[in-house]
């Protein structure tokens, strides 16, 4: 169990993480979602014990995590900056990772390089953006650490490499269950791999739930303005659009099938709301006004 208790992180006057308490059961794949500047990286830095919170604590299995060598060895935190020596070759960077981590699987690391077709003799400085992402993912997966955090580390990859990454991530997780936290804004294509999602907004945790519980949670209702408004009574409205007499409302919450059938008979059209859209509606400032 990983626990954050009242964690606040400040940079001067800026509050990046604002009094966050979060309990994460181990051996699950988590998706951390949030807009740019919502505090994701700061939160992850605290979770990975890279940064001491300005206030609050992070506990791993009940033990304070910061500056705890055993927990640090069992944590891999991969940032898009990679934190590697530019003049090193990929192979040397992997060797260093192997020496730092008792759980490191060198054979698996090389298998991954093969899969992604990356030459281990290349220097870090000579890698393309996509190749840097691949190195990050290899460092994260082959570490096999009980806590593995990938902070937007695969976003430089092209669609083919990302697909390979999702496949490898799932296969390796099935074989070696561990806690994996992935922050991303490519929500739709990876959501099915997340057991739970945490959504951050302006330094706070807006939502922490099973990913599957969010599917079918939002719904759009379209039709004649008056009927749509009448239908929406008693529901939380996340967003609205009106065009010459036609109104489309985005509602939060699961609707009863009977309710939908009644609405359809009244000439209303219903559509599902994808996770990406739900995320956009929940974290967009403008929509909050109409809430």
């Amino acid at each position: 169990m990983i626990e954050m208790r009242g964690v606040t992180i400040r940079y001067g006057d800026t509050v990046a993480v604002d009094d966050v308490s979060l309990t994460l059961p181990t051996d699950k794949i988590y998706g951390l979602l949030g807009r740019n500047g919502s505090g994701k990286t700061s939160l992850l830095s605290a979770l990975a014990s890279y940064r001491r919170p300005s206030r609050g604590t992070v506990l791993v299995d009940g033990v304070e995590a910061f500056e705890n060598p055993a927990i640090m060895r069992g944590t891999a935190f991969i940032r898009d900056t990679l934190d590697l020596n530019d003049s090193d070759r990929v192979r040397a960077a992997l060797d260093v990772a192997g020496r730092l981590r008792p759980t490191w699987d060198a054979e698996y690391a090389h298998k991954l390089l093969d899969i992604f077709e990356l030459d281990p003799r290349k220097r870090i400085s000579a890698l393309s953006r996509g190749q840097r992402s691949i190195v990050g993912v290899v460092l994260g997966l082959a570490a096999r650490t009980p806590l593995t955090i990938l902070d937007e580390s695969y976003l430089g990859m092209d669609a083919v490499a990302r697909t390979l990454f999702y496949r490898e991530l799932l296969a390796d997780y099935l074989a070696h269950p561990r806690t994996i936290i992935i922050s991303t804004h490519l929500i739709e294509e990876v959501a099915e791999l997340f057991e739970r999602v945490v959504i951050m907004d302006r330094g706070r945790v807006l939502l922490h739930d099973e990913t599957d519980a969010l599917r079918g949670r939002g719904v759009t209702v379209t039709g004649p303005a008056e009927q749509v408004s009448a239908f929406a009574t008693g529901h939380t409205v996340l967003g609205e659009q009106t065009l010459v007499g036609v109104r489309a409302l985005t509602l939060d919450g699961r609707l009863d099938p009977d309710e939908i059938a009644r609405g359809e008979r009244a000439g209303l059209t219903f559509g599902p709301l994808g996770l990406q859209d739900l995320f956009v509606h929940l974290t967009s400032q403008r929509l909050e006004v109409s809430r």
Partner: peptide, 17 residues
């Protein structure tokens, strides 16, 4: 559930449910 998860590329906990 693990075969199902790997085949359809979904989280095993979802398949198990």
């Amino acid at each position: 559930t693990n075969q199902y998860a790997a085949f359809y590329r979904i989280n095993p906990a979802t398949a198990a449910k």
